[in-house]
Design a binder for these strands. Structure first.
Length: 1099
RNA sequence: GGGCCCGUAGCUCAGCGGCAGAGCAGUCGCCUUAUAAGCGACAUGUCGAAGGUUCGACUCCUUCCGGGCCUACCA
C-alpha cells in the first residue's frame, strides 16, 4: 500500500519527482482555479532584474514570497500569482555593451539605437526565462506565463500618467546642478545609484596644496588644499569660514594665509606667525586662480566668499570652489552668485575652452595639473591620500561631479504626505519603518532623467516657441497630439519614440521629446498601478479590487529604492500607501560572514545549491532566519538544516515501515463527506475504536467548502477523544499547540517562529513520542492500543505535512502522497489543495503537558544518576524514588510505567520527602555568615551540623532565631547507601530523584539477557538483515549464561526474531565440528561471561 | 554629524520582565531491527560596560564602548 521510504532522504531527487507530479497533475493551476472568486489576498512581486541568473540571495526572498502565497492559498484566498521582471536601465545596457564589445555612448550610437534596444530586449527575455526555470526549481508557484515586464508599453504608459500628474502639480522641473557623473557610462547617477553596495571604495588620490597669489598684495598667498586637482581648472572662488581665525605666516620670504589650526600640519613645523585675521575680513579679497589664463575663465573674477560649512580638521581652512565640478560648490555658487564653469563634457574630457587641457580626461589628468602648477609656482606640495570615494556602481569607474541639467520631481510638497502614508504601514521588522521615515525626512528631490538609451522614454516635450512643457500622459494622448512619426512607432522606446513630434499644448507648435530616459525606479515603482487588475488606466474597477497590496517583501535596501518609489507614486496618485504589510530581511553572506563575490571564489550558485542541498533545505534555512541578522549561507549551515529535516523524514520513514509491516490502514473518518466512496480496504484491518483518527481528521479535515473569510471550526463542537494513551494525548496536545501557534505566527508573516516551533515539535515527536511508543507499533498489547499509536502518529505526520507545506512543499507533498493519497483516492490530490490546519485549542491539555514535562525531567535526572553510577540502562535496577520539597507530585500510573520502562527500573516510587532516600546537608557559608553573625556564627554552624534547622519554601533556612538566605548556606543531598541521588533545584519545587543501585542475581540475569539481545541485534544490523528477516541462533556459553537463556529464552527469541535458539555447549571446551554456510559468529565477553554467538538467516 | 540594527558558551544563533538555552565543536558515555544516525551526561557564560525603573532586568529606560548598515555639504 505505502511506497517504501528510503531512510537516506535524498531531497534533490525527491524534489524532481514532485516537480514532475505537480506538472503532470497541474496542481498549481487547480489550486488557483479552486480559489478563484474567493476573498482576495493581494501580493505584489518586486521585479527581479532579468539581467543574469538568479542567486541564492534571490532565492531567500522568493522563499518568503512563495510560502506566504502558499499559506494564503491553503486558507482559500484568491491570488494573482504574478511574477515581475525588471527590464530597463543602465545595468542591462552595461551587460549588453560588454557582450557587444562596445565601450562608450558614441559606440552605442554608431551601433544603432534600434539594434541596441533589440539586443537589450533579447537579453532580458533570455534571463527572464532562466530565472523562471530556477524559480520553478525552488518550488515557487507563480503564474509564469503572466509575468509582467517593466519594459512593456503598458508599464511605460502608467509612468507617463504619473509624470503628467507630477507636472500638473507643478513638481517637475529641469534643474541645473552638480551631479555625480560616470564618465564611462556618460550619465549622471541618482542618489539611489550612488549608494549601491560597492559604490564607495578606498581610493588613492593626489592631495595637493596650492598657493594662490593674492591680488594687490605681492608676496602674499592663500594656501588651499584639494584632493581633486582636475577641478582647479574650474576654480572661481575660495571659501573661508567668517568666524575662523586665519593666520598670516611667513615662510621663505612669502606670506601665507591659512586657518590658525592648520599651520603646523601644513608646514610640518611652526613658522613665524605675523598676525591673525578673521575669515570675515578676508571676504572679497581677489586672487589669481590656478588656471586663470584659460579662455573658459576669461570672465571670471576670482574672490573670497564666506561659507559657514568650512572646517579646519583637514586642509587649510580655505576651500577651493569649482561650482561646475562639485555639488557643495554648486550650492554655494547659487547663494553667492558665482559663475558656474563646467570643465568636462559627458565623457569626462575637458572642453575646448580649456586650452592645453582640452580633450584630456579628468580621471588621468592629475600629473599634468601638478606639472602646470609647478611651472606657475603655485604648487606648495603634492602628496597622495587614501580615502573612501564613490565609484560607479555598474562599471566601477570613479565618479566625478559635473554640473548638468537634469529633470527632477520636487519632494517638498509630497514629503509630509509620504511620511503620513508610511506610518499606516505595518513594517516587519519595525525598524524598517523607522528607516523609511528617516529616508523620507532627508530625501532630496528625485532626479528622474538619465542620458541613456534603453529605458523609459520621458514624455516631456518642451516648446522653444512659447516655453511651455507638454507632458504626455497616455498612448492615446500621444497619438492624438502627434504631428509626425507616428507611423514608425514600433514601441515606446528609443529610437522609435524619438521620431515623433507633437503639437505643443499651449501654442500648437511642433515640439520634440527630450532625449533622456527615466530612472529605472520609476519602472518598478509604478507596478502597483500598471499590473494590478487590468491596470490603473484601463480598468479602474478591477484594479481597485487588488489595490493596495496586502503584503510585499524584499531585501532591506529596497526601503530607499522600490518601497520608496512605489510609495512616492502611490501617494501622488492615490494619497495612500500601496502596501499594508511589508517584510524586509538583511544581507546574505557566506558561512564565514564574508560577502559572496565571484572574485573571492566564495559565491554559491543557485543551481548548484539546489542540487546539492535541495530546495527544501534551502527554504527551511531561509525561512528560519531572523529578519534583523545577516544570513550566513553555505553547505555547512545547510547540513545542520538538512539534519533537522531528516529527523522529520525518519519519523515518516518509521511510520511507513511499520504501517506496511503491520498492515495498518488509516480509516476514513466517519463524519467526512463522500461516505461510501472510500477505498476498498476501508477500515478492514482495524480494531473497533477508531476514535482518535476519526476525531483528528474531523478536527483538521482535508477538504472544506468554507471560504477564507470564515475560519474552519473543525471538530470543536464534538468532544475530544477518550481513546489512546496519555502519551498519545500528550503528543496531540503538543500538535494542537503547534497548530494554534503556526496560525498565529503566519497571520503576522512570522515564518521564523514557525520553523523554530516545528523543529521543537519534531524533536518531541521523534525523541519522546516515537521513542516511548516504538514497541506499540510492532508488539502492541492490544489491537486498540496498536491502532491508537498508529493513528496518532499518522495524524501527527499528516497534520505536520500540511503545516509545513508552504515552507517545504516537496517533503510535505511526498509525505502527504504516501500517507494519505496512497490509500484514499478521494482525498485532495495534493497537500497544497488541503486547507491549512485551523487553530483549535480544544485538544490542548495543559495539565497533561505539565505532567509529561515532570516525567521527562525525572528521566533526565535518573539518567544522570545512572551515568554517574556507571550503570548502563540495559542493567535493570529495582527502583527510582522521586520527591519534591515544595510541590505535591502528580504522576499517573501510566506515566510512572513509562518512566520505569524508559529507565529500566522495576518500580517508580514517590516519596513524601527526600528524607526517605537521602539526607539534606546544610552547611554555612562562612565567608558571608561569619561577618554577619560575628560571635554567633559557631552556634549557628553547630545547629546546622546537628540538623536543628528548617528549610523554607524560598530556599532560605531558619536556624533558631536566624534566617539564613540561600546564598548564605550550601545545601546538598547526601545519598543513603545504594542510592544515587540527583536533584534539580529549579524544577517542580526542588525535584530530587534517587536511583536504587542494589542488584540481585535475577536482575543481573535479566541484564545479561538484554546484553545478548543487544549483541545479536548488532550482528543482525552488521549482516544487513531487515526487520522481517528471521534467524537461527546457536551459542556456546558458561553455565551462568546458559541459565540466562533458560530463564529468558522466550524473550530473547522474540526480540531477535529467531525461529530457533540452540545451545551447542557440550562442555566448556567443545566447539561444533563444522560451521554451516551463512553463519555470522561473535565471540567475546558479556558482563564478564564468555560467550560465542552464531547467527544464521533463515531463508 | 543624524538615523537604524547587532553585541548571549570556542563558533553560529534562539530567548526579549520572573531562577541563562539550542545546534556545531570538546570530553565521557548510552541507546538502536525508524534514523550512513540518534540520545544523554559533563564542561564552557560577570547575557558588551555603567547607571536607572522594578519585588525582580539578558529582556524596559539612559549613557557609553565595539561591529555593521543607511544617510549627510567636509574641499
Amino acid at each position: 500500500m505505502y511506497k517504501p521510504v528510503p531512510t537516506k532522504g535524498d531531497f534533490p531527487t525527491l524534489e524532481h519527482e514532485i516537480l514532475r507530479l505537480w506538472d503532470e497533475r497541474q496542481i498549481f493551476q487547480k489550486l488557483a482555479l479552486r480559489n478563484r472568486g474567493n476573498d482576495r489576498f493581494s501580493f505584489i512581486d518586486g521585479p527581479i532584474t532579468a539581467n543574469n541568473p538568479m542567486g541564492v540571495h534571490h532565492a531567500w526572498g522568493r522563499t518568503y514570497k512563495d510560502l506566504v502565497q502558499r499559506y494564503k492559498a491553503m486558507k482559500g484566498f484568491d491570488q494573482r500569482y504574478q511574477n515581475g521582471f525588471d527590464c530597463q536601465g543602465l545595468w542591462v545596457e552595461v551587460e549588453v555593451e560588454r557582450a557587444l564589445g562596445l565601450d562608450s555612448k558614441r559606440q552605442i550610437e554608431e551601433y544603432g539605437l534600434a539594434q541596441f534596444a533589440d539586443r537589450c530586449r533579447e537579453r532580458v527575455l533570455t534571463y527572464a526565462d532562466v530565472i523562471t526555470q530556477q524559480s520553478v526549481r525552488l518550488g515557487m508557484w507563480m503564474d509564469w506565463p503572466n509575468s509582467y515586464y517593466t519594459m512593456s508599453d503598458s508599464n511605460i504608459e502608467h509612468i507617463w500618467h504619473f509624470l503628467k500628474r507630477c507636472h500638473e502639480n507643478g513638481w517637475l522641473y529641469k534643474g541645473w546642478r552638480a551631479m555625480p557623473w560616470c564618465a564611462r557610462c556618460g550619465t549622471s547617477l541618482s542618489q539611489h545609484e550612488l549608494i549601491g553596495t560597492d559604490s564607495y571604495r578606498d581610493v588613492v588620490h593626489p592631495s595637493v596644496y596650492v598657493r594662490l597669489p593674492i591680488v594687490d598684495r605681492p608676496g602674499e598667498y592663500f594656501m588651499v588644499w584639494t584632493t581633486t586637482p582636475w577641478t582647479l581648472a574650474a576654480n572661481v572662488a575660495l571659501a573661508v569660514h567668517p568666524e575662523l581665525d586665519y593666520a598670516r605666516v611667513q615662510v621663505d620670504g612669502a606670506v601665507y594665509y591659512l586657518s590658525a589650526k592648520t599651520v603646523s600640519p601644513v608646514f610640518r613645523n611652526d613658522p613665524p606667525v605675523l598676525g591673525t585675521v578673521k575669515g570675515a575680513d578676508l571676504v572679497g579679497w581677489r586672487y589669481r586662480a590656478p588656471f586663470t589664463e584659460l579662455e573658459a575663465l576669461v570672465d571670471v573674477d576670482p574672490r573670497v566668499v564666506p561659507w559657514t560649512d568650512v572646517g579646519e580638521e583637514e586642509g587649510t581652512g580655505i576651500v577651493h570652489i569649482a561650482p561646475g565640478a562639485g555639488p557643495e560648490d554648486f550650492e554655494l555658487a547659487k547663494v553667492q552668485g558665482l559663475p558656474v564653469i563646467v570643465p568636462i563634457d559627458e565623457n569626462g574630457e575637458y572642453y575646448a575652452a580649456f586650452g592645453p587641457l582640452a580633450g584630456k580626461s579628468a580621471l588621468t589628468v592629475h600629473p599634468e595639473i601638478v606639472a602646470s602648477l609647478e611651472r606657475t609656482g603655485m604648487l606648495h606640495r603634492a602628496e597622495r591620500i587614501e580615502h573612501r570615494y564613490p565609484t560607479c556602481w555598474r562599471c566601477g569607474q570613479e565618479i566625478v561631479f559635473r554640473a548638468v541639467s537634469e529633470w527632477f520631481i520636487s519632494c517638498e510638497e509630497i514629503r509630509p504626505r509620504m511620511i503620513e502614508a508610511a506610518r499606516t504601514v505595518e513594517w516587519n521588522p519595525a525598524s524598517a519603518g523607522k528607516r523609511m521615515e528617516d529616508w523620507l525626512n532627508n530625501m532630496g528631490d528625485w532626479c528622474i532623467s538619465r542620458k541613456r538609451y534603453w529605458g523609459l522614454p520621458l514624455p516631456f516635450y518642451p516648446c522653444d516657441a512659447c516655453g511651455t512643457m507638454t507632458a504626455v500622459g497616455t498612448m492615446d494622448e500621444l497619438r492624438e497630439r502627434a504631428v509626425s512619426g507616428l507611423d514608425q512607432l514600433r514601441e515606446l522606446h528609443r529610437p522609435w519614440i524619438d521620431g515623433i513630434r507633437i503639437r505643443c499644448s499651449a501654442c500648437g507648435a511642433p515640439v520634440t521629446r527630450i532625449t533622456e530616459v527615466g530612472d529605472c525606479w520609476l519602472d518598478a515603482g509604478i507596478v502597483p498601478f500598471s499590473t494590478l487588475g487590468g491596470g490603473y488606466i484601463n480598468d479602474r474597477t478591477e484594479w481597485a479590487r487588488w489595490y493596495p497590496a496586502e503584503w510585499i517583501s524584499e531585501m532591506r535596501e529596497q526601503i530607499r529604492l522600490w518601497f520608496y518609489s512605489m510609495l512616492f507614486m502611490s501617494v501622488t496618485l492615490e494619497e495612500r500607501s500601496p502596501y499594508r504589510h511589508l517584510l524586509t530581511y538583511e544581507k546574505l553572506l557566506d558561512e564565514t560572514g564574508r560577502p559572496m563575490h565571484k572574485s573571492l571564489g566564495n559565491a554559491i550558485w543557485f543551481d548548484e545549491a539546489a542540487e546539492r542541498m535541495g530546495a527544501d533545505v534551502m527554504r527551511w534555512l531561509y525561512a528560519g532566519q531572523s529578519l534583523q541578522n545577516n544570513l550566513l549561507f553555505g553547505y555547512g549551515p545547510a547540513e545542520a538544516v538538512r539534519r533537522d529535516l531528516l529527523t522529520l523524514w525518519n519519523v515518516y520513514s518509521f511510520y511507513v515501515t511499520y504501517a506496511e509491516t503491520e498492515q495498518f490502514v488509516p480509516r476514513r473518518p466517519t463524519g467526512q463527506d463522500t461516505a461510501g466512496s472510500g477505498p476498498g480496504r476501508d477500515g478492514t484491518s482495524l480494531g473497533s475504536t477508531g476514535l482518535l483518527s476519526d476525531f483528528l481528521l474531523r478536527m483538521w479535515p482535508l477538504t472544506t467548502d468554507e471560504g477564507p473569510s470564515r475560519p474552519q471550526t473543525g471538530a470543536a463542537a464534538s468532544p475530544p477523544p477518550t481513546g489512546g494513551s496519555r502519551t498519545d494525548r500528550w503528543i496531540l496536545s503538543q500538535l494542537a499547540t503547534l497548530v494554534v501557534y503556526a496560525n498565529d505566527r503566519l497571520e503576522a508573516y512570522d515564518a521564523a517562529a514557525l520553523v523554530t516551533a516545528v523543529d521543537r515539535f519534531v524533536d518531541d515527536l521523534s525523541n519522546w513520542y516515537v521513542r516511548r511508543s516504538r514497541r506499540r507499533f510492532s508488539r502492541s498489547a492490544s489491537p486498540e492500543d496498536r491502532e491508537a499509536a498508529f493513528s496518532t502518529l499518522h495524524a501527527c505526520l499528516v497534520t505536520l505535512s500540511r503545516l509545513v507545506a508552504p515552507f517545504i512543499p516537496f517533503v510535505a507533498e511526498e509525505m502527504y502522497q504516501n500517507l494519505v493519497r496512497s490509500w484514499d483516492a478521494s482525498a485532495p490530490e495534493s497537500v497544497h489543495l488541503t486547507p491549512y490546519p485551523a487553530a483549535d485549542a480544544s485538544l490542548i491539555d495543559l495539565e497533561l503537558d505539565r505532567e509529561m514535562e515532570l516525567a521527562r525531567a525525572i528521566v533526565t535526572l535518573a539518567r544522570a544518576a545512572r551515568n554517574e553510577a556507571g550503570i548502563r540502562v540495559r542493567q535493570p535496577l529495582p527502583s527510582v524514588t522521586i520527591a519534591s520539597e515544595a510541590a505535591a507530585l502528580q504522576l499517573s500510573d501510566e506515566l510512572r510505567r513509562e518512566i520505569a520502562d524508559e529507565l529500566n527500573v522495576k518500580q517508580v516510587y514517590i516519596a513524601e520527602h527526600v528524607d526517605t532516600f537521602a539526607r539534606r546537608v546544610v552547611r554555612p557559608n562562612p565567608r558571608i555568615l561569619g561577618p554577619r553573625l560575628g560571635a554567633r556564627f559557631p552556634e549557628v554552624a553547630r545547629a546546622l551540623l546537628e540538623g536543628e534547622y528548617a528549610i523554607q519554601a524560598d530556599g532560605s533556612v531558619r536556624v533558631n532565631e536566624h534566617l539564613l538566605g540561600p546564598d548564605e548556606v550550601s545545601m546538598t543531598l547526601e545519598s543513603l547507601p545504594d542510592q544515587s541521588v540527583k536533584e534539580d533545584l529549579q524544577l517542580h519545587g526542588r525535584l530530587a530523584v534517587a536511583l536504587d543501585r542494589t542488584t540481585s542475581p535475577e536482575l543481573r540475569a535479566e541484564g545479561l539477557a538484554r546484553e545478548i539481545v543487544h549483541r545479536v541485534q548488532t550482528m543482525r544490523k552488521d549482516a544487513g538483515l531487515s526487520v522481517p528477516d528471521r534467524v537461527e541462533l546457536d551459542y556456546l556459553a558458561s553455565a551462568a549464561v546458559r541459565t540466562v537463556f533458560a530463564t529468558h529464552g522466550a524473550r530473547i527469541r522474540s526480540e531477535i526474531g529467531a525461529i530457533e535458539v540452540r545451545d551447542l555447549t557440550v562442555d566448556d571446551q567443545t566447539r561444533p565440528a563444522g560451521r554451516p554456510d551463512g553463519v555470522l559468529t561473535w565471540r567475546g565477553t558479556l558482563d564478564g561471561e564468555e560467550i560465542t554467538l552464531m547467527l544464521r538467516r533463515v531463508p
